[in-house]
Design a protein around this nucleic acid. Structure first.
Length: 846
RNA sequence: GCGGAGAUGGCGGAAUUGGCAGACGCACUAGCUUGAGGUGCUAGCGGGAGCAAUCUCGUGGGGGUUCAAGUCCCCCUCUCCGCACCA
């Protein structure tokens, strides 16, 4: 028999060509009354090439979107481009092209690759963040932030990447290096910059992790965000400087240990320290700051310097020396600490180095106060040697001490957050201009809403040397003040690209709106995103910024949802040759290569099959070949048996209900070519295969609904196909007609091209993803008989077949007399018999 | 140090509520197909003993609960990820 060959190139290109000409194929229906489902993958940066790491991300979302369509949902599945950023500018400098031109050509190329992969995006909603309409709304949001006091400008010490030649937000510094240049340490530079007040939402961002996201977002993302926000409850206490008007405010979480404070330590940059110290002291401080900047984060030797002054502990009245210390951070808490060496490891190290006394003030609830300096630092216990507070448990002491401080005005209970405001200015060209004008007379003036968008000049010289190239463009920089009309200068900073990605998914709902960022009614329908899918690398970048943005938009009255995404899924990385794919290691497999060698369907199928989607997966060519073989097996089986299904127009589809076994055994001349023995065989084979089909439908459906273990769904499909191969000769045309169409539908979400081709071969009209998802029939999925495992003392000794639902008593009797158990019962006394209906019988003997 | 996730054959991984450990795939071995190679098809494949039926050990290590534990409880080891002189 001449075998039909599965030629992926032929199949995929055929459908690619047809779908290309159908712009409405994947359109969401804005008028629909069906339940909505908004599934979204994180938008890519248009680097120009899609690699198989991205493909895995999109394959997961695409399978889900297709499944939801088949389930009858009104599905929104958009894709766009995060098109601003430094790589575009750097690439433009290298190639002498304008960043816009470079970006747009990359987008065209990447879009082509997405289309060729067969992803089901509604391209009508495509959003590109470098379009003037998009930065109009970025600027509009900026003005709203300014009105609400959420945007401000200040001079601060900031992270500076020498390669990017711009500042970075704290979230964009990883291990002391730039997130884009993993081996380039960031420097600290004092610059005047724009900030957005994410700290104003710190408490809500933290609270909603517990109240709204827990259980729906991955634990590790939530734990990273909790960590990043870093809420810390404690106290602030003022220490007066002896013989001076200055006070030092310290932050501590353990005010109950304050009677054990033996010195106060300030960050070297602390203004009070700078003021108190002489020239030599300031030089030491400078030394510490430089050393820290040079060394980066991590281990640094403790270094300290006595300022020559003393401070007064407001609780005890005691006099303690004031030091500066290189381990005290200016930008956390108040930049000053009280050192309690008896109860804190760092303070202990510092104080032993410099001979500062150690005074224990906390004893364990069930033990005495430590007499000698020691290295074990007790947690909460009983406060001792602490005046009126002695004898109180730590928590109670903290409460009363805070009360006293508030009453006397030298302190209070206080909460400190680790998260800092989001620095959004960048000194580069390729970003949204910040819509502000600096007027010598009126000061800082926002650009009026009617003048938006402020667009980037095109005649710009890109150098990548540091200062914004916009400063050189006089036609851009010189404007009239909107207030007084006198000559003024534009703000030359542009916005962080994370601003763009903070709200793009709202714009998808209304991408062509030119009077507002979006229509709130449309947002109310689609939001929150039902399922957001992306990499874990954005846990404290994009995913915290977009949560912040959502809360701001809610407070502006634009939306009503408090969180952007109801569910988040973080897929694992694709590993090749034991390492994460990266250009440096030269082990990147591009989507293009994959399509060429195996086909888009094979690549997607393998990426979903090799591991559960949340885990990292290894890409191996051999494994991909296995997936290719499977698709070939399905393809050959369906194509060579399609004719036998007797498909004709108006044939009932799977949805109309599966047949009862009785129908299958009914007369069918087509399948009754041979004698009655074969017929009995055939009926049996048909039942078995049909049962396997319904078990598979159940399995795949449940995998989609509960946990996305597509690897087991696909394994189920493989088992079904193996069963069909084993029974092929015996299956009647009627049986095949019942089995093949649902099989193809089940394959649809994972391998859309093959499924579409086979659907057509079966005489149906597609598209597959608009067909109703097959329904499984519990009765048909049921086994004829239950195999009962017979155990003696928990060890398997035999198995028997009994009708489903056999009563316990009968099973027990059978088990006790079955030949397989006899040798193990002989001479023993039966103590107990456990019967689990339809599963097992365990005989306990002694 | 704090927080999170893990540990199952040669490999990736199954085992949904405690009930046959190793589904499915890869690799490997054999047979058939083929002029040959490849493809395709069929079968075998955790360790140990045995010609075999079969027996026995086995889910990082140690204890426990249970008729029954990869799964539940306690202790330990190791791996990965995130944060880290955060007061």
């Amino acid at each position: 028999m001449a075998e039909t060959v599965y030629d992926h190139k032929q199949v995929e290109l055929k459908w690619f060509e047809r779908w290309k000409n159908d712009p409405d194929l994947y359109k969401a229906d804005p008028e629909s009354t069906r339940p909505k489902y908004y599934v979204l993958e994180m938008l890519p940066y248009p680097s120009g090439s899609l690699h198989i790491g991205h493909v895995r991300n999109y394959a997961i979302g695409d399978a889900l979107a297709r499944y939801k369509w088949m389930q009858g949902f009104n599905v929104l599945h958009p894709m766009g481009w995060d098109a601003f950023g430094l790589p575009a500018e750097n690439a433009a400098i290298q190639r002498g092209r304008h960043p816009r031109e470079w970006t747009l050509s990359n987008i065209a190329e990447m879009k082509r690759q997405h289309l060729r992969m067969g992803f089901s995006y509604d391209w009508d909603r495509e959003v590109t963040t470098c379009e003037p309409e998009y930065y109009r709304w970025n600027q509009w949001f900026f003005l709203k932030m300014l009105e609400r006091g959420l945007a401000y400008r200040k001079k601060a010490l900031l992270n500076w990447c020498p390669l990017c030649a711009t500042v970075l937000a704290n979230e964009q510094v990883i291990d002391g290096c730039c997130w884009r240049h993993e081996t380039t340490p960031v420097e600290q530079r004092a610059l005047t910059q724009w900030f957005w007040k994410i700290t104003a939402y710190a408490d809500e961002l933290l609270r909603d992790i517990t109240d709204r996201l827990e259980g729906h977002w991955p634990d590790r993302v939530l734990s990273m965000q909790r960590n990043w926000i870093g809420r810390s409850e404690g106290s602030e206490v003022d220490f007066k400087i002896e013989g001076s008007a200055e006070t030092i405010r310290v932050f501590t979480t353990r005010v109950d240990t304050i009677y054990g404070a033996t010195c106060v330590i300030l960050a070297p940059e602390h203004p009070v320290a700078q003021k108190l110290m002489d020239e030599a002291g300031r030089a030491r401080a400078r030394q510490m700051i430089d050393a820290r900047a040079a060394k980066g984060p991590g281990d640094i030797e403790k270094d300290g310097h006595f300022t020559g002054h003393y401070a007064i502990n407001p609780y005890s009245g005691g006099r303690v020396p004031v030091w500066i210390g290189n381990f005290v951070l200016m930008d956390y808490g108040t930049g000053a600490i009280m050192a309690v060496p008896a109860h804190d490891e760092r303070d202990f190290d510092f104080c032993t180095t410099y001979g500062i006394p150690i005074r224990p003030v906390i004893r364990p609830v069930d033990g005495p106060l430590a007499e000698k300096p020691q290295a074990a630092f007790p947690d909460d216990g009983i406060v001792e040697n602490s005046g009126e507070f002695s004898g109180l448990p730590s928590a109670e002491a903290r409460r009363r001490m805070n009360g006293l401080a508030e009453e006397k005005g030298f302190g209070k209970a206080a909460i400190t957050y680790r998260i800092k405001d989001w620095g959004i200015s960048r000194q580069r060209y390729w970003g949204t201009p910040i819509p502000v004008i600096h007027c010598p007379a009126c000061g800082m003036v926002p650009v009026p809403e009617s003048d938006l968008p402020v667009i980037l000049p095109t005649d710009v010289k890109l150098t990548g040397t540091g200062a914004s190239p916009l400063l050189e463009v006089e036609s851009f920089m010189n404007v009239k003040c909107p207030h007084c009309g006198e000559p003024a200068r534009r703000e030359s900073d542009t916005m962080d690209t994370f601003v763009d990605s903070s709200w793009y998914f709202y714009r998808y709902c209304d991408p062509k709106n030119s009077t507002a960022p979006f229509d709130s009614k449309k947002i109310a329908y689609w939001f929150p995103i039902d399922q957001y899918i992306g990499g874990v690398e954005h846990a404290i970048l994009h995913l915290i910024y977009s949560r912040f943005f959502t809360k701001v938009m809610r407070d502006l009255g634009l939306i009503t949802n408090a969180e952007p995404a109801a569910r988040l899924f973080t897929q694992g990385m694709v590993i090749k040759d034991g390492a994460k794919m990266s250009k440096n290691k030269g082990n990147v497999v591009s989507a293009e290569e994959m399509i060429d060698r195996f086909g888009a369907d094979t690549g997607r199928l393998f990426e979903l099959f090799a591991a559960p989607p949340e885990k990292d997966m290894d890409w191996t060519d051999a494994g991909a070949e296995g997936a290719y073989r499977f698709l070939g097996r399905v393809f050959r089986f369906v194509t060579r048996n399609a004719d036998r299904t007797g498909s004709r127009p108006g044939n009932p589809q799977a949805r109309t209900g599966p047949p009862r076994p009785a129908e299958l055994s009914g007369t069918n001349e087509d399948s009754a070519e041979a004698g009655s023995v074969v017929r009995a065989d055939s009926i049996n084979a048909g039942r078995k295969a049909l049962r396997k089909l319904h078990q598979t439908i159940r399995r795949v459906t449940e995998d989609f609904n509960h946990r996305w273990h597509f690897n087991t769904s696909i394994a189920g499909l493989m088992e079904l196909v193996n069963e069909l191969y084993a029974q092929e000769d015996k299956l009647s045309g009627e049986a095949l007609a019942q089995i093949l169409p649902p099989l193809v539908l089940l394959l649809g979400p994972f391998a859309p091209y093959v499924a579409e081709e086979l659907w057509e071969q079966l005489g149906r009209t597609g598209p597959v993803f608009r067909q109703p998802w097959p329904i499984y029939d519990e009765e048909l999925a049921k086994e004829d008989a239950a195999e009962i495992v017979l155990q003696v003392n928990g060890k398997v000794r035999g198995r028997i077949l009994v009708p489903l639902g056999s009563p316990k008593e009968g099973l027990e009797r059978t088990a006790l007399t079955d030949p397989s158990t006899q040798p193990f019962l002989a001479g023993k006394q039966v103590v107990k018999v456990i019967v689990v209906p339809d599963k097992l019988v365990n005989i306990v003997v002694r």
